[in-house]
């Protein structure tokens, strides 16, 4: 058959076929519709598990309590009892092994996050004990005078 249209047609069909063949090798086996619809559920299934395996860094108060019972007891009843340990002591991901000491943040900036005075009527910010940074013992760390585990207690 000598029809000049046929030759480029074979090439085109060959190209399309090669794309489908390549797709078989390149697309992972678990790629498909997993979920209620194609629109929202078209994905690689094993990625869900990959996200679940992402490492946890903040282990939480219960994890601290396993060894530091007395520190949590000291915190009980104080105005800081709702403050998470790791907010100041840092995430305990590799503590105690291999990292024996956590980087304790004693910076004024950490305390000022809640205790810098802002006169905002629609928040609880005004209800918190607060200071004006410019005028209150500027060059000292807050923990020099205030016990962070029981802020009502002052050191002289």
């Amino acid at each position: 058959m000598k029809w000049h249209v046929l030759r480029p047609l074979w090439v085109a069909i060959g190209l399309v076929a090669s794309i489908f063949v390549a797709r078989v090798f390149l697309v992972p086996d678990d790629f498909g519709v997993h979920g209620d619809t194609f629109t929202y559920g078209f994905h690689r299934l094993s990625n869900v598990q990959e996200w679940k395996d992402f490492p946890v860094k903040y282990k939480g108060r219960e994890s601290c309590e396993e060894c530091h019972e007395e520190n949590l007891a000291a915190l009980n009843g104080s105005t800081h009892q709702t403050v998470e340990c790791e907010n100041c002591h840092g995430p305990s991901i590799d503590h105690p092994d291999p990292n024996e000491f956590l980087p304790l943040d004693k910076d004024r900036a950490l305390c000022l996050r809640c205790h810098a005075f802002l006169d905002y009527p629609n928040t609880d910010r005004g209800a918190l004990v607060s200071i004006v940074d410019r005028t209150h013992k500027r060059r000292y760390e807050c923990v020099k005078c205030h016990n962070p585990h029981d802020p009502k207690e002052y050191y002289e």
Partner: peptide
């Protein structure tokens, strides 16, 4: 998720929208 041209972002069965970093 609707606009993703490669299926790299999706909604899980428990309603969370995730991004497949490999894809």
């Amino acid at each position: 998720v609707q606009v993703c041209p490669v299926g790299a972002t999706y909604k899980t069965n428990d309603g969370i929208v995730l991004v497949d970093r490999d894809w």
